[in-house]
């Protein structure tokens, strides 16, 4: 009896999963299929299977995008931003979880509160700030401009990252800390040699979330970047709209090309990712 019940519920599980997997996948498949259709077919047919395959659209779009150049720019920005986020906020998370100082809890709550600060109206003051720091404008170098682009992104990632790192580090047993202390390690030694290497899962979590966000960012980079040579992929993507009429197949092909690197990063990191969330978000 119990066995039957178990069997039935397993079957139901698979039905639920398959149904939802289709729902998850459908829009993505639609995007892929549209990239292979003619524009007229995109607008007139609901079928996922193109009547006629137009691989030339993807090839042309790829060439038009000058993919590697802008891909490199996007990689530089995303990697630096994610690197900065992981370094700065893993330290902060460790500080909040495993060390003691005056006003620790208050500061932590203050950081969390910043999470809800609205984003729209801060663009103007940010640009004024970057201007004062020499990080924006026609005379700013690429290094300075990218710094100006990345630092606010790092700042914006603060609250959630600190939250995840702190919670993760608090789940690690106190004995680790004590043992190292007995060995005469300073807090810094403990952080770098013991805690950071243990934090792979949460690094993957914070990394992937922010990689997706930074990679897809559109408004902020279009504000900061003036020199087309420094553009990121999403900024370059808009240059595909060269005709008065939107070419949906070209747009979809461009989106597909842009999203593939993210999917690869995601596939690579997802294994760690889940463990990171388990530890980071659950045991609050």
């Amino acid at each position: 009896m119990d066995k039957v019940r178990g069997y039935v519920s397993t079957v139901i599980s698979y039905i639920v999963l398959t149904a939802y997997a289709l729902l998850s996948l459908y829009p993505f498949l639609w995007m892929v299929s549209s990239a292979l259709k003619s524009n007229r077919e995109v607008l007139s047919s609901q079928s996922l299977i193109p009547q006629e395959l137009h691989f030339d659209v993807i090839v042309n779009t790829w060439n038009q995008l000058n993919f590697f150049k802008y891909f490199t720019n996007s990689v530089i920005i995303s990697v630096l931003a994610v690197g900065g986020i992981v370094l700065v906020y893993s330290m902060a998370g460790f500080g909040f979880a495993k060390t003691r100082f005056v006003g620790r809890n208050l500061l932590f709550i203050a950081f969390l509160g910043v999470m809800f600060v609205p984003g729209v109206t801060v663009l103007v003051p940010l640009v004024q700030l970057l201007r004062a720091l020499g990080m924006i404008g026609r005379d700013a170098t690429q290094v300075a401009t990218y710094t100006g682009l990345i630092m606010p992104i790092i700042n914006g990632a603060g609250p959630l990252s600190i939250f995840l790192f702190r919670n993760y580090f608090s789940t690690l047993p106190g004995e680790l800390h004590d043992a190292a202390r007995v060995d005469g390690s300073s807090n810094w030694g403990i952080y770098f040699r013991i805690f950071l290497p243990l934090a792979t899962p949460v690094i993957a979590t914070v990394g992937i979330l922010n990689f997706i966000g930074t990679w897809n960012a559109y408004i902020w980079p279009s504000i900061v970047l003036n020199n087309p040579d420094w553009f990121t992929l999403p900024l370059k993507l808009k240059d595909l709209d060269l005709q008065i009429v939107v070419q949906w197949n070209v747009r979809m092909a461009g989106s597909l090309i842009t999203v593939i690197p993210v999917i690869l990063v995601f596939l690579f990191l997802q294994r760690y990712y889940i463990r990171g969330l388990t530890a980071g978000a659950i045991r609050g």
Binding site: R131, I223, K238
Partner: peptide, 23 residues
């Protein structure tokens, strides 16, 4: 050199911020 920034809302914001930074 001709550059385009779209959609409208982003373009307007770009002009606002560029006027602030002299760009």
């Amino acid at each position: 050199k001709v550059s385009a920034f779209n959609p409208d809302e982003v373009y307007r914001t770009k002009i606002t911020t560029s006027a602030q930074s002299g760009d």
